[in-house]
Computed example of a mutant assay.
Amino acid sequence: MSVADTFRIDTTEHKPIGSTLLVGQANPGMAGVTAVDHLVRHLDATLIGHVAPNDLPAIAPFEDGVPRHHGRLFTHTGADMTILIEELFVPVGAGRGYVDALLDWIEPSAVDEITVLHGVPFPHGPEEHDVFSVATPAYRDRRLADSSLSPLRGGLLDGIVGELVTRSLDETVPETGVLITPTHLPGPDIDAALRLIDALEGLYDLDVDETDLRTFGDQLKQYYEQLASRMESRGAGGSDVSSEYPDDRMFM
């Protein structure tokens, strides 16, 4: 099987695709995927299809006992936007095949701009809890000219995001911009997701109710504080904390 055949997109609803493709994928900290998941829950979005891997193991996220596809496509006609939520951690080596499938799907459409919401656990100080941008020149001129988002000083983008940006530089895909914010592990980093949503609202004149997400973030912080307190108490009592608790507490 060729790299181009590693993913496929199955569409169930034949609805117009907006001129902007918004992408949020699973990365350490889960900021991007958390942000776009909140968007489709609180905007007038319609599920139109899903992304499926042909030669990678799939995952089946579920909520209240109901499973769903890990990669889902929604249209939001009010903002002339199509939203991609990808909950599968796509390996860096599979990024090319994923982007091939995505670009084949949007080729006959009116998509002329791709925006990626991307959280990265890079070293940062308290004053750097902000959203930064990495964008091709045409995207900057069109979307960021009047924005207060600062360009990220240096680094690299790989996987799906790197493929999209590189191909946009080669002018083989629509103009691409990446909104990047630092994340804290293990995640989900709700504060980072909220920063991405706030930045997106400013760029696309969206109005998103963030109440539920902020409440969830407060509950998550309280949970981790209580968990850390219990771990410290056990450690003070002489027990081996590391043998009782995994390092990654994401699913605890």
Rank of each mutant, 00 (worst) to 15 (best):
S2T: 10
V3F: 12
V3R: 04
D5C: 01
I9M: 07
E13N: 01
K15H: 04
P16A: 05
I17Y: 06
S19I: 09
T20H: 05
L21C: 10
L22E: 00
L22T: 02
Q25Y: 01
A26M: 09
A26T: 10
G29E: 06
M30C: 10
L39M: 13
V40M: 11
R41D: 09
P53Y: 08
P53L: 12
P61D: 04
R68S: 15
H69L: 01
H69M: 06
H69S: 10
H70C: 06
D80V: 06
G93I: 05
G93P: 04
A94G: 09
G95E: 08
G97S: 13
A101F: 01
L103G: 13
D104S: 15
E107M: 06
A110D: 14
V116E: 01
F122V: 11
F122A: 13
P126V: 03
E127W: 05
E128F: 11
F132G: 02
F132T: 07
S133I: 04
P137L: 09
Y139G: 00
Y139Q: 03
D141M: 13
L144C: 13
A145Q: 08
L149W: 10
L152M: 14
L152A: 14
L152N: 06
L157S: 15
D158Q: 13
G159P: 15
G159D: 14
V161G: 02
G162M: 12
E171V: 08
T172W: 07
T181K: 00
T181R: 00
P186S: 14
P186D: 09
L194S: 12
L196V: 04
I197K: 07
I197C: 08
L200A: 05
E210K: 09
D212L: 00
T215V: 12
F216C: 00
F216D: 10
F216W: 08
L220D: 12
Y224T: 04
Q226I: 02
L227G: 03
S229E: 12
R230N: 04
M231E: 12
S233T: 06
G237T: 03
G238F: 10
G238C: 10
S239A: 07
D240T: 01
S242I: 05
E244L: 11
P246V: 06
P246H: 03
D247E: 15
M250I: 10
F251W: 11
